[in-house]
Design a protein around this nucleic acid. Structure first.
Length: 297
DNA sequence: TGCAGAATAT
DNA sequence: CATATTCTGC
C-alpha cells in the first residue's frame, strides 16, 4: 500500500542529512567516539537538528522504540515503498548510487569502513570524465535538504540494526521546523569538478544553472546551489582572466580550481588550497572526521 | 574586522 | 537567469 498512513512514513518527516556540516561532528565528539560503522550510519551522523550542543549526547539515545523508519522508507522497497517520496524522482537509471560514494576512500580508510570491495584502492577519487560516463554522481557530498525534494539514498547496506540515534524522529534536519535555511552545501573538489565539466560541456551559452544541475545529476543538488556556485565561479573566471594579478596562466589559487590541481603553484597561494572545500573548515572537518595524520583517533 | 563561500532576495 | 545582498564561520 503506497499510501502511508499519516504519522507513519512521513512521520517526523525524518530526513537524512549528509555530512555537510562537519561542525556538527566537531561539536559532537560523541559522534566520532564510535565513528560510523556503515555507510548508512555515516549518513545519519550529521543530523542537522541533532542538538549539536547536547553535550550529553554521549548517549546516542538508541531508543529501542525509535523505529528505523528512515531506512524503512527505502528498505521497505521490497515490501512497501513510500511512493510518495518517489514522485518526481528520476528513474533508477538516472539515479546516482550514493550508498558507497558517500564515503570517500580516505574516509573509509580513516574509519576502517569497508565500502563495497575495498573501495580505497579501487575508487580513485580523482577519476576524471565524470560526465563522459553516464555514471554521474560519485563520491560527492550533498547538502541536506529539508524542504520538499529529497532523494533518498539508495542504500544497499544490508541493514544491520543500526541504532537510529538520528535526531529525534521529527525534524531530523533542523529541529522540525522547515522554516529554516537549508544546510550549507559543501562543494567538494569532486563536486566542483563535475560542475566545471558540466559547464564546459554546456558551453558558455548553455551553462545555466538548470542545465548544469541536470548534467551534473547529483542527487540533492539544487538549482540554487548551482546558481550560487556558478556566480562565484564566474567571478573567479573574470578575475583570473583579468590581468589583475594572474601570476599564472590560469591556475586556481582559490577554491575554484578545476577540481584537483596536480601541480599547485609553488608560490603557495596565500588563501587556502586548490580544493573547493570550505577553506578552513576543511581542515578541521577532516580532523574531526578522524583524518588526523599525526594523531590517532 | 575582514574575507570567503554559500544562501537568499531582487 | 543573473545579479545583489545577507548570513555565517573563521
Amino acid at each position: 500500500m503506497p499510501a502511508p498512513s499519516p504519522g507513519d512514513s512521513l512521520h517526523g518527516r525524518s530526513r537524512w542529512c549528509a555530512p555537510t556540516d562537519h561542525r556538527d561532528i566537531l561539536r559532537n565528539p560523541s559522534l566520532l567516539a564510535r565513528g560510523p560503522q556503515t555507510p548508512a550510519e555515516y549518513v545519519m551522523l550529521s543530523p542537522r537538528g541533532g542538538r549539536p550542543h547536547d553535550a550529553t549526547a554521549a548517549t546516542p539515545a538508541p531508543s529501542s522504540s525509535s523505529s528505523p523508519r528512515h531506512r524503512a522508507g527505502m528498505e521497505a522497497g521490497a515490501s512497501g515503498r513510500v511512493l510518495e517520496w518517489e514522485a518526481g524522482l528520476p528513474v533508477a537509471s538516472e539515479l546516482t548510487p550514493v550508498s558507497h560514494p558517500l564515503i570517500t576512500p580516505a574516509l573509509a580508510a580513516a574509519f576502517r569502513i569497508n565500502i563495497g570491495g575495498g573501495a580505497f584502492a579501487a575508487a580513485s577519487p580523482f577519476d576524471d570524465s565524470p560526465l563522459a560516463h553516464d555514471s554521474p554522481t560519485s563520491h560527492l557530498s550533498f547538502p541536506c535538504d529539508e524542504d520538499e525534494d529529497e532523494e533518498e539514498v539508495e542504500e544497499e547496506g544490508e541493514g544491520e540494526g543500526e541504532t537510529e540515534d538520528t535526531a529525534s524522529g521529527s525534524g531530523a534536519c533542523r529541529g522540525g521546523a522547515r522554516a529554516g535555511k537549508k544546510a550549507r552545501m559543501v562543494w567538494t573538489p569532486e563536486l566542483h569538478h563535475r560542475f566545471v565539466e558540466a559547464v564546459g560541456h554546456l558551453g558558455d551559452k548553455g551553462a545555466v544553472p538548470k542545465a548544469i544541475v541536470r548534467l551534473m545529476n547529483v542527487e540533492g543538488l539544487t538549482r540554487e546551489n548551482v546558481a550560487s556556485h556558478l556566480q562565484k565561479y564566474r567571478i573567479y573566471l573574470k578575475r583570473t582572466r583579468n590581468p589583475a594579478a594572474p601570476q599564472h596562466p590560469q591556475p586556481f589559487p582559490t577554491a575554484y580550481g578545476p577540481s584537483f590541481d596536480p601541480h599547485p603553484p609553488s608560490d603557495a597561494p596565500s588563501r587556502s588550497d586548490y580544493c573547493a572545500f570550505p577553506s578552513r573548515e576543511r581542515d578541521q572537518a577532516l580532523q574531526a572526521m578522524g583524518w588526523k595524520r599525526t594523531k590517532d583517533v
